[in-house]
Design a binder for these strands. Structure first.
Lengths: 215, 215
DNA sequence: TAGATTGTTAATCGATTAACAATC
DNA sequence: TAGATTGTTAATCGATTAACAATC
C-alpha cells in the first residue's frame, strides 16, 4: 500500500539495489539492520535509506531498525517480483541467447514463454527449455498465449517493423537493447532501455577525465 | 577545452545520447540544427540542450544554430572516442561472447586486445579476430601489453579474486556486468556498472504501477 | 537591418541531507 | 527507564527550465 502513488523514478531505480543488499544480508543470516548500517554497506546516506523506504510505508521500528527478511519481502512485493509476467524474446542472436541463458527471469518478475527469430538456421533449435520459433509465428503465438512484455534483442533497423506487430498484438511493455526510441513513438508503453554503447562511451569519457573517484 | 572541469555525471551521461542523434542527423545529410529542433527530436528541452553543450564550450552560432557535423565531432572529442583504450575481456561465456561480437569497440573508444577464460574447452578457440587465452596467462599478457581497461563478464563470486590480480597489474578502469561492488573496495578506480537484473526489476515495477508513460 | 537563435543568468523545481521529536 | 533508531519535517544542494540580452 503505497503512501504516495507518484514515487519518483530516482527512488524506484534504487529499489532493486536495496533488494540485492537485503537478499545478501538475509542469506548471511542477519536478522535486523539499522538505516545507518545499511547505508554504510551500500555507500549512501542513512537519510536517503529512510526517506526511500518511507515512500512505501513505515517498515522499521524505532529503537530497533528494520527486520532484514521482512524488509526484503516488502521490497519484493513492491517491485512485484512474484508477478511472473509472461515475456517473449525477440531475436536469438548472441545477445538474445546470452540474456536468455544468463538471467533467472523467475526471480526478476518474469517468465520467458517464447523466443522468436527470422534466421532459418536457428528456428527449431533449443534455447534453455524453449524452442526457437519462427518470427512469422508471432501472431499465432500471441493469439494462444497472453504475453505481457517483449525483450527486444534485435538490431535497430529491424525494430520498427516488429514493434508495430507487437504493439498491435497488445504488448506494451518492452525491455529494449536497441537504440530505437520506442517510447517516443508509442507513448502508452513502458520501456526500459539498456544502452550498452552509451555506457561504454561514458566509461571512455571518465577514463579521459580521471581524477575523482566514482560517483 | 572544457570551460569547467567538474561537469556533473548527469550531464556526462547524456553525452552519448547527443552523439547518437547527431551521428544520425549527420548521416541523413543535415548540416545545421537548432537547439529547439534537436530538443524536439530527442524529447528534451531546448534549454537543457544549450546548457549541456555549454558545459564544454560555445559550439553554436547565434541566429544559425549548430553545425551538425562539427558538433558531432566535438562530442566525439569530448568523449574521447578516438583514444583506442586497450581493453581485455574477462569471461568468455554467453555474455562475454555476445558483448565481444555485438559491439564495435573501435567506435566506442576502445580496442579489444585480449580475452580470458578459465574453461579449458574455450581456451584456444577464436572469438572474433582474437584467440581465447587461459586466464592464467593474464600476468604474462599484461607484462607484454599495456592494458587500460577490463570488461568483466564473469559471475559475482569470481570477481574478487580476478579483480585483485587486475588491480595489481595496474588496471583501474572497469566495465562491470557483475554485482560485485568494485568502486567501494578500490576507490581509485573508474567503474561503469551494467546491472541488467536491476533494470529488469525496474521494468517489472513499472508494469505493476503502469499509469503514466515514460519518464 | 530584421529575424533567429545562441550563451548565460535568474527562477523554479526536485532530490538529498540534516535535524529532531516520536517512540519502541 | 535510558538508549537507540525510526519517521518526518525543514534546510540545503543540485539540476532543470524560463527568460532575455548578446550577436550572428
Amino acid at each position: 500500500m503505497p503512501k504516495n502513488d507518484s514515487i519518483s523514478m530516482t527512488v524506484i531505480r534504487r529499489l532493486p539495489r536495496y533488494y540485492r543488499f537485503l537478499s545478501e544480508l538475509d542469506e548471511q543470516g542477519f536478522e535486523r539492520i539499522s538505516s545507518n548500517k545499511l547505508a554504510e554497506i551500500m555507500n549512501v546516506t542513512a537519510s536517503q535509506v529512510r526517506q526511500d523506504l518511507n515512500c512505501f510505508g513505515g517498515f522499521g521500528q524505532q529503537g530497533y531498525g528494520y527486520s532484514v527478511s521482512q524488509l526484503k519481502l516488502e521490497i519484493q512485493k513492491i517491485l512485484g517480483l512474484n508477478n511472473g509476467y509472461r515475456a517473449i524474446l525477440i531475436g536469438v542472436g548472441n545477445f538474445g541467447t546470452a540474456i536468455a541463458k544468463h538471467l533467472d527471469f523467475n526471480k526478476l518478475g518474469f517468465e520467458l514463454i517464447g523466443c522468436f527469430e527470422v534466421d532459418r538456421k536457428k528456428i527449431g533449435e533449443p534455447l534453455g527449455n524453449l524452442i526457437v520459433s519462427d518470427e512469422a509465428e508471432l501472431e499465432n503465438f500471441c493469439a494462444e498465449n497472453k504475453v505481457d512484455a517483449a525483450f527486444l534483442c534485435i538490431p535497430k533497423q529491424n525494430v520498427e517493423e516488429i514493434l508495430e506487430r507487437l504493439y498491435r498484438l497488445g504488448i506494451k511493455s518492452y525491455w529494449n537493447f536497441s537504440h530505437y526510441d520506442i517510447a517516443t513513438k508509442y507513448t502508452d508503453t513502458v520501456v526500459e532501455n539498456v544502452h550498452l554503447s552509451d555506457n561504454l562511451m561514458t566509461l571512455c569519457y571518465r577514463m579521459n577525465n580521471k581524477k575523482s573517484s566514482n560517483p
